[in-house]
Design a protein around this nucleic acid. Structure first.
Lengths: 224, 224
DNA sequence: TATATTCTCGTCATACCGACGATAACCGCC
DNA sequence: GGCGGTTATCGTCGGTATGACGAGAATATA
């Protein structure tokens, strides 16, 4: 028996210009000063883990958790993962709609969105490369059997916008016609608002809201 | 910033006489002395989390982890979850084949299998009711899209035995003929050994081993 | 020998999915 | 206004997977 510091680290994902992107902060203090890292911080002495994750998300992004989705990812506790000593971290995964402008937290010099394809994974601090990979894989898998793709969208969105979420997260193109059929016929996935877009390119599209379903039956399978 | 004790707690599941069962230990010391709890213990000062889980599994059941399946479940860190002070626990889920006789560990007065339906959930120590519920739900979900049901079986097993695993975990009856077709036609799920059972009731059944697949395509969906 | 039990193979109707055609309804431009 | 470009939406068709169920095979047991 011994004591350990406990932190939460956040994999905050969003879609920016059709690219899956992650929020990173540039560390201002050792260890790993000047390197990019996942946002996160120490859990308070009387604070529950989800509360700490919500607090860090608010501090680092200024976003209330209500808009998107936040869930626990996994825990990481290798004895040597932090040179300062024993630190166990609880990873959280957040999915947010577009473009809350990042604002640097107190202990971070800088915060910015990075396209996932541009992240230099070897340069991330601590074991954050592994945590990031786990978060991305979790997001990819969850799109299959849950309606969580809508967490990347604003409250009202078109089927086309939802399809672009799938395409960005999975990195594959999907047939617009089959996708439209699948989404609109899966019970509880989305509900039509009766309103339409205007001013966009092409034929106006109906706007939808998130439906009540928590699980997709049958699931949306990614192409082989 | 503060320091916390770190423990691992194990949800160890097996199938005994067609019933999903969980390994519980009776606590010999306060807090919760005399109450049933999940097996677990403190993480060593220089020990990684998975190593601690494997060690506890071996200490509490005498089982090498190679036979079954072990994965991280989730972490629990409510400030008041342990009356002794701040303790964050990492839950692990273990799926084992039948009947390794439980042996009490050093700090447990008694260890025994409990049918899930017989567990008096309000009487579990700490927040172990919640951890157990999360573990069972994870197991139920994973049978759908992974070949993990075979982790409940010995190295060689019949399709009927595999079906009984699904029925015990899901609590539903499955059609033997459709189940047989599904399992044998899903690539990599099971591989035939060419040997057959003898001495059982009914027509002898072919024995199978676990196949190389890690994901089932398409998944085995539970009945609505 | 008869019966119960379980395994294994087939059949059939239905649901779902990938590929793709066709039309609708907007835009900007000439 | 007319025209091409773009996106949304609806349909069709064939292959595949699945649920419901029949039927026979191969054993143990009475």
């Amino acid at each position: 028996m011994f004591d350990s510091a406990v932190t939460v680290d956040l994999v905050v994902l969003t879609i920016r210009r059709d690219a899956l992107s992650v929020l990173l902060v540039k560390r201002g203090a050792p260890p790993y000063a000047g390197r990019w890292a996942l946002p996160g911080g120490f859990v308070g002495a009387a604070e529950d883990l989800p509360d700490a994750a919500v607090r860090e998300l608010r501090e680092e992004t200024g976003v209330h958790e209500t808009a998107g989705h936040l869930e626990q990812l996994a825990s990481y506790g290798a004895p040597d993962r932090d040179p300062r000593g024993r630190v166990v971290t609880i990873g959280y995964l957040a999915l947010l709609a577009d473009l809350p402008v990042p604002q640097a937290g107190t202990d971070a010099a800088e915060a910015a969105w990075h396209r996932l394809s541009d992240v230099d994974r070897d340069r991330l601090a601590f074991d954050h490369e592994r945590i990031l990979a786990d978060g991305v894989e979790r997001a990819r898998a969850k799109l299959e059997y849950s309606p969580l793709a809508a967490a990347f969208c604003p409250a009202e969105f078109t089927i086309g916008a939802l399809r672009e979420v799938y395409e960005a997260v999975w990195g594959t193109a999907l047939d617009p016609r089959n996708f439209h059929r699948k989404v609109t016929t899966t019970p509880g996935f989305v509900v039509p608002t009766g309103r339409w877009t205007t001013g966009e390119r092409g034929r106006p599209a109906q706007l939808y809201r998130r439906g009540p379903a928590t699980l997709l039956h049958p699931p949306m399978l990614r192409p082989a």
